[in-house]
Structure formats: C-alpha cells, structure tokens
Write a protein that binds this DNA or RNA. Structure first.
Lengths: 343, 343
DNA sequence: GAAACTCATGTCATCGATGACATGGGCTTC
DNA sequence: GAAGCCCATGTCATCGATGACATGAGTTTC
C-alpha cells in the first residue's frame, strides 16, 4: 500500500506537504503542488482512511442496525440512508440485529467499536440505555420504534394513525368483524397499531372482540397459521388488518390457499408486488426510503452543527394506498378490465 | 472513550498487560488477570477496533459492492454474506454501485480505502483490472458476473444453463413464439442468458426471430413497455422469458394490465410474492443466500490459508421452480382448489 | 556454581495521516 | 533598521492497541 511518505520521497518533499496537497491546503506553491500530484498519479496513491480516522477521530461512516437487512422495508430504508450518506462522502456499515432482544447490545457494540460517526438503529430490545455512553461521541437516531430509557432522536411512522385509518377504511367498506394479525404487543409498534385499531372500532361504535385480536406471531408462517384459525371461528372475521408487511406476505398466501380472497385485507406497510396480487392489496405506506433519508440527514445535521437544537421526536405521516383487497367480493371477481376502469 | 491505558492505570499494570488479558495471553498471573478484568468491568471497557486494525493490519470487515442494496436478490446475497461473516466475528461494509459502469472504480476505491479484509463484488463495469493492485492485500471474490481483465475467484449462476432450461420448459409447454426480455447484451449475464435461450430454440429445431429478442431495457418500467410492444406484433409471442427478476416485476404487471395473463412467463430469478401471483410465476431460482454464503466462505478460507489453492471459477447450478405461469390458459383459469390439487 | 530456560511484566516503536507548532525567508509598517 | 506579519515547508507528537524485544526472578540442568 502506497503511503504519503512514498509519494513524499518521490516528489522530494515531506509527507506533511503531500497531506497538504491532498487536502487542498492553500499553503503550497503551485510548483510543489504539481510535483506532488504527479507523484501521486504515478504511484496511484489512495489514502488510508483508517489512518486518517485514527488521527482525526472521524470515520465518515454511518452505522446502521436493523432487524434484517434482507427485509424489503429495511433494505429500502438502508438505500435511503446510503444515498444521503454518499452525498456527504460517507459510507455505511450495516448489521442485522435478528429478532432476539437479548443480543441487541452485543451486536451494537460490535458495530460501535469500529468507530462510526453516527448510528441509525431500528431497535429490537426493550432497553436502549446501554447506548447512553456513546451519545457524547456520535449522534444516534432511532427509526421504526422509539428509544426506551434513552433520550435520543427518532423518526417513526404514525403507527396509531395508520392503524386507525386502515381500520376506518375497512369499516367504511362495511366490515364489522375485523381481525388484527401481527407481532406480540411487547413490540411497541404493534402495541400502537393495536391501539389505533381499537380506537377506530370505538369511534365507529363497534365493540372489540378479543377473539379477533390475533397478535403474537413471530414470522409470516405463523401469521398464515393464525389466519386459518381465525377463519375457522364460528363467527369468522370478514376483514383482516395485518399489522406488518412481513406478516402480510404470509396472510395473503394463506387466504389464497384457502380460496378466501373474499376476506378483505389491509397491510400496515407496502411490500413487493402487492399492487399486482389478485386482489391487489391495500396498504398503509411507510415510505421507507424517506425514513432512511431523514434519519441520515439528522445524523449529518448533528455532525455539522453539534450544539444546534433539532426536534427529537418525529412522527412521520403514513399514507393509505387503496387497492382492491378491501372491496366487497362482487367487485373484485369482475373481469379485470372492468376493475381497472373503476380504479 | 475508555482506553487500555485507563484500565491499566486503574488496575496498576501496564497497557500491555491489559492487552494480554483482553486477548487471553497465557502469560498473566491469575491475580493480575482478575484485577484487570475487574477494572475493565468497572470502566465498561470496549476496545477500539480502529487502533487494533491499524496496528495489526487486519480490520475484520468484508466489503460488499453490489448494484443496489435494495434489490431483493442482492439483499438476500448480503444477508448470506453477513451470516457467514458473523460466524467469524467479522462485520460487513456495503455499498451500492448503481448502474453507471463509469462510477464503479471510484465507488470501489471509497470502500477499499477504509481497510477491508476481503471484497465481494457484483461488478457493473467492463473492466476490473483496477482491482489488481489490491489483490496482494486482501482476497477478492466476484459474484453474479465474472471478472473482466482480472484473475480472481468467482461464483456465478449458470446463466446459460438456466436460460436453456427456462426456454426448454416453455417449448415443452407448446410455445414456439418465445420472446426474451431484459438488459442489454453489453451485460455479460444477459449475453449468456440470450445464448442459452438461442441454444434451446436451436435444440428444438426452432428458428429464432429477431423481433422476439427484446433486450436493452434498463429497468422494470422499460421492460413493461417492451412487453406491450411485443404483444402488439402481428405475430405476437405466446411466451416470454424474462432474463432478470428485476424486469419480471415489470413484465408481470404489464401482462396483467393488458389482461394477457394467458401469455406464458418464466423469470430468471425468483422475486417476492411470485408464488402467489395469479398466475404464480415459474422461475429459475438463483438461491442468493447460498451465493452470498459461498462467496464469504471463500474470503474467509483465503484469509485463513493464504497459500492454499482453491478453484477460482465456480458456476453454481440454478433450479427451475415450476409454478403456473407457463401453463396453457385453460389450466390456470380453473377454480383455485382444482389448481392446487394438480400441484 | 554457572549457564540455560521459563515465566511474567514492562518499554517502546509501529501502523499512516494530520494537528500543533517551529523555522526561515521575504515583505510591510513604523 | 527593527519589529511584526505572512507564506511555505518541515518536525514531531498524537491517535489506541499490539509486535518485538528487554528485563528480572526463579527453576532446572550440567
């Protein structure tokens, strides 16, 4: 690996002068500058960021910790972060936290010890107080779920409002037996989405039925199984609010396998191909790229102006994308052309 | 940030002894070891990986460069790499190359200058000779496309064989007018897939028709548009071989919008929800997690045994997953239950 | 008893780039 | 002419952990 000292030797100057040239320091004569640049080109010099980071105390890296890098939602969030970071010549280090809350702290420490200039985290544990010791070193921004036992920036979707709107939408389409399927309410986002669901029922003067609150699944397969159980009830639901896109990808195939695509479905979170399923699935869109971008921009803003005040608590509005899945059965069994004309 | 010197001061030893304790060096008495460990716990010491990397010349980081981190295929590859890396206490740095070949080199240099112990790259440019200078420093493994002008390890799918099989499958279902839709043949994977397609036609004694070779799209929208053009031909195709899952997610919605789901479709590469679309889409499955894993394992193997010989050229078999999309129209318009019983 | 070996601990240079400051020369101001 | 300022360049300590080696004490072998 070519070092600045190698370039310096070749150009007949000190390494410090090479550093000055490389960093566009004005205190270099034009003649010296050209000589050094020529040597850099000849030796194809690429700076060692590690040494720079070490000396400067800055890495130009944003750490990203999400439950699963392969999850479409978090992949899109990551993309949003990456694009914003790149505009500022920063790189990203990504890690999956998995779904075991007990591992969050140790996995985060693995990321942090590599020296990052900021951390964006979608937490899975119930306690983030372990991060307090690093808040003096770099900005930390939470996404998807708010931090617990830690005062930090966050950008989360309007879980309550989105669930409220989704449930309202189902009610407006005539559904009164509405199930909610998803994670355990130990998961804060699920808890809020349940609250939104319950509030919409109450707002419409409907009584909630504990049998229809089918929370506690861990993955898409479990959600699929829960659906089958729900539809076997004597007083089965006519609609399902899936509290997470990850589960929706289990719920939809289950409904299809049961030949029950007459059951209305709305997903909190969009997912790939949802718009071309039959019926196409109505969703509450979280706009993950935007989430990633604003989170990264907050990191960058805090780095640029360490003492400036920014609003810490940010709830991002979500948007209902109405597709076919909440229509009545008569509507979406019509020929495709007719259905498209209606949309 | 607590340093080893802080711990050393507290424990009344040298920083070197702290290092020995931390790294389980046997040349420390049990008494000293306990004293140091106690100090580490009290100070919540977390080592600075940067300093270690700097001194040791090893970072325990694998760099990953793929066209797009948000692409489901590459997200799954990344996941496979991450899991393998984590088993060896290594982290991953991820970057998206985008789709402009001219930017590959500069983006890769941004990754490399951060000191990585290995690089896994799905290239987009026509020339990777710029990587030669780093091959003495760390192992480089190519995925998805073979390296050009560089002698390096690669793990690529059987593009030719998969395309051959996909086309054969369509022919076996009675299709003689088969179009191929996808990227430009400047893209090496597309070129091979075209060759497989052509070979299968020739093998079946079918003549290829230039009108049905609809390559050159850049994204899913363009592929959708190409489909419309193809189906407007006087002698329109009855089947489409989509050479990339990314394009399939444009082709399928286009066929649906045109109410032409009678057109057979097979996708090179699986994609989310393909199995629950109607008709569910037959695919040539690339198993991206496996690709990621074997690539990472090669990096790890080369690090562990630098002089050992490994096979550089690895073509990973792909697998046909037959679903409904290549059936004749009569078959997949039957009631769902009947269709499932047949599968 | 002397030499060799082992164990435990410590010192110090190293990694590559940069911050802090020194230094010498030239120019300007008083 | 002296003092102060600015420019251009260089020296050297720094960043935190570890490799290379030194050192002193204790034990074993000849």
């Amino acid at each position: 690996m070519t070092t600045m000292q190698d370039v310096a030797t070749r150009a007949g100057v000190s390494a410090k002068t090479v550093s000055r040239v490389f960093n566009d320091d004005p205190h270099v004569t034009e003649d010296t500058r050209e000589r050094v640049q020529s040597a850099m080109r000849e030796l194809k010099y690429v700076p060692n960021m590690l040494a720079r980071t070490f000396r400067e105390g800055k890495s130009a890296v944003i750490g990203i910790a999400v439950p699963d890098v392969a999850d479409p939602f978090f992949a899109a969030v990551t993309k949003g972060i990456e694009l914003a970071a790149r505009e500022h010549d920063m790189a990203i280090v990504v890690t999956s936290l998995g779904d075991n809350p007990a591992l969050e702290q140790s996995i985060i420490q693995t990321t942090v010890r590599r020296q990052i200039d900021g951390l964006i985290i979608a937490p899975i544990a119930a306690d983030q107080s372990y991060l307090a010791r690093w808040q003096d070193s770099f900005p930390i921004v939470f996404i998807d779920r708010i931090p617990t036992k830690l005062h930090a920036d966050y950008f989360v979707e309007d879980d309550f409002g989105g669930a409220f709107e989704a449930t309202k939408h189902l009610i407006a389409h005539g559904h009164h037996r509405i199930a909610i399927v998803g994670d355990s309410t130990d998961v804060p986002t699920t808890k809020l989405r349940l609250e939104g669901y319950l509030a919409a029922l109450a707002d419409a003067g409907l009584k909630s039925d504990q049998e229809l609150i089918a929370l506690g699944s861990r993955d898409a397969d479990a959600a699929a199984h829960v659906c089958k159980t729900l539809l076997a009830l004597p007083d089965a639901p006519t609609a399902i609010f899936s509290s997470n896109a990850r589960f929706s990808t289990g719920v939809f195939p289950a409904l299809q396998a049961l030949n029950r695509t007459d059951i209305a479905l709305i997903s909190f979170g969009d997912f790939p191909m949802a718009d071309v399923l039959q019926p196409s699935v109505s969703v509450i869109d979280q706009n993950p790229r935007h989430v990633g971008r604003v989170a990264a921009e907050r990191i960058l803003a805090r780095i640029a102006a360490p003492t400036k005040k920014f609003r810490r608590k940010n709830v991002i509005p979500v948007k209902l994308i109405e597709r076919q899945s909440c229509q009545s059965p008569v509507t979406h069994l019509l020929p495709q052309l007719t259905s498209d004309a209606r949309m």
